[in-house]
């Protein structure tokens, strides 16, 4: 998948040349080197990292809420990021002029999204310390998200056409916008998030039985929640900051992993979801490029088109199984 991705693009480059550029770092054609090293390779790595991050954070949310339809965005992380971006774009008219916006704009959007999802995470953590029942946290998270989305709508209503378009493009998600220097931030953040999720996996295994059982075995439920919410939010929040909200990966991939690996063990599922998440994103990226043309579909639409049938299949299968 990795190599197919390297091969496909609007400029055709021979296999031999790609091999030379990737593994030996040499090429006669400077333009081709740039295309591979600065565009195709970062995009592929981004796709892999995004797939892993969203799948693992979705897995964690499903495990802690014991709800098969929970995903990385149930706690309102994407709405928080959206609010950050919306505020930035609306105020950008005063902060930036046309020339420095495109220059600073990319990083500024990342920071705004990060800040937005970070604030939502902080609020959710505050709530989860006070509220005992985890389902209440879930409902509050969804309500948070809804409230923030409506704030975004209000902001959109008052924004000019240019900002509105930038915002809409951001919500469609994109893997291609991540530069090499941004990758240097995205990658370590995702590694930290993965590290936190591996640390919380033992607790999540016990929490599969329910909170009372977990507590009776010595699980500190508050510590587990903080660790899981923080880990999942870093993963999903960072990805959303750099690539926009990308739907369905986080909900669908853990289910596919459960079916393939036939286990409920969170440790196994973290690795399984990572693998399948990476493949899922690479495949989505491949499909987003219409063969024989230079048009690229928004990645968010592609993941939805692949993801929705899988969810429908799962729901119907579950319904049959239980009745």
């Amino acid at each position: 998948m990795f190599f197919i991705e390297l091969f496909i693009g609007s400029v055709s480059i021979s296999f031999k040349e790609i091999f030379n550029i990737v593994f030996l770092g040499i090429s006669e054609n400077e333009a081709n080197t740039t295309i591979i090293a600065d565009f195709r390779l970062p995009k592929i790595i981004t796709a892999i990292v995004v797939g892993i991050a969203l799948a693992v954070s979705g897995l964690q949310m499903q495990a802690i809420f014991r709800n098969p339809l929970a995903g990385p965005y149930v706690l309102g992380i994407s709405s928080g990021a959206g609010l950050g971006v919306a505020i930035l774009l609306l105020s950008s008219g005063w902060l930036f002029n046309e020339t420095n916006f495109s220059f600073l704009g990319n990083w500024a959007m990342v920071l705004a999204a990060w800040l937005g999802s970070g604030i939502v995470l902080f609020l959710v953590l505050l709530v989860s310390i006070r509220v005992k029942d985890v389902l209440t946290v879930l409902i509050l998270g969804i309500m948070f998200g809804a409230a923030i989305s409506s704030l975004v709508n209000i902001l959109q209503f008052f924004s000019d056409q240019q900002s509105l378009k930038s915002y809409v493009v951001w919500t469609m998600g994109s893997l291609g916008g991540v530069t090499k220097s941004q990758l240097a931030v995205l990658l370590p953040s995702v590694i930290i998030g993965l590290f936190l999720s591996i640390l919380s996996a033992k607790m999540l295994n016990a929490l599969l039985l329910g909170e009372n059982y977990a507590k009776s075995m010595g699980v500190n439920v508050l510590k587990a929640r903080i660790l899981v919410f923080a880990g999942a939010s870093i993963l999903a929040g960072t990805v959303t900051a750099f690539c926009g909200p990308i739907g369905f990966v986080g909900i669908v991939v853990p289910h596919i992993a459960r079916i393939i690996f036939r286990t409920s063990n969170v440790f196994t599922l973290i690795w399984g979801s990572s693998l399948i998440g990476a493949l899922f994103m690479l495949m989505s990226d491949l499909l987003s490029r219409i063969p024989g043309s230079d048009t690229v579909l928004p990645i968010n639409s592609v993941t939805a088109i692949i993801g929705v049938p899988v969810i429908i299949y799962l729901v119907i299968k579950k319904f049959k199984f239980e009745s």
């Binding site: 295994n205 016990a206 599969l208 039985l209 329910g210 009372n212 059982y213 507590k215 009776s216 075995m217 010595g218 699980v219 500190n220 459960r258 036939r262 286990t263 409920s264 063990n265």
Partner: peptide, 29 residues
């Protein structure tokens, strides 16, 4: 809570429903 967990175990009225989990895994938890 860890000390209490070494002294006292619990079987609640809640049904344990975890898809794909096998008996051995449940007991091992």
């Amino acid at each position: 809570s860890n000390r209490v967990a070494l002294l006292c175990s619990y079987v609640s009225t809640e049904h344990i429903r975890v898809s794909e989990m096998i008996v051995y895994e449940l007991v091992a938890i």
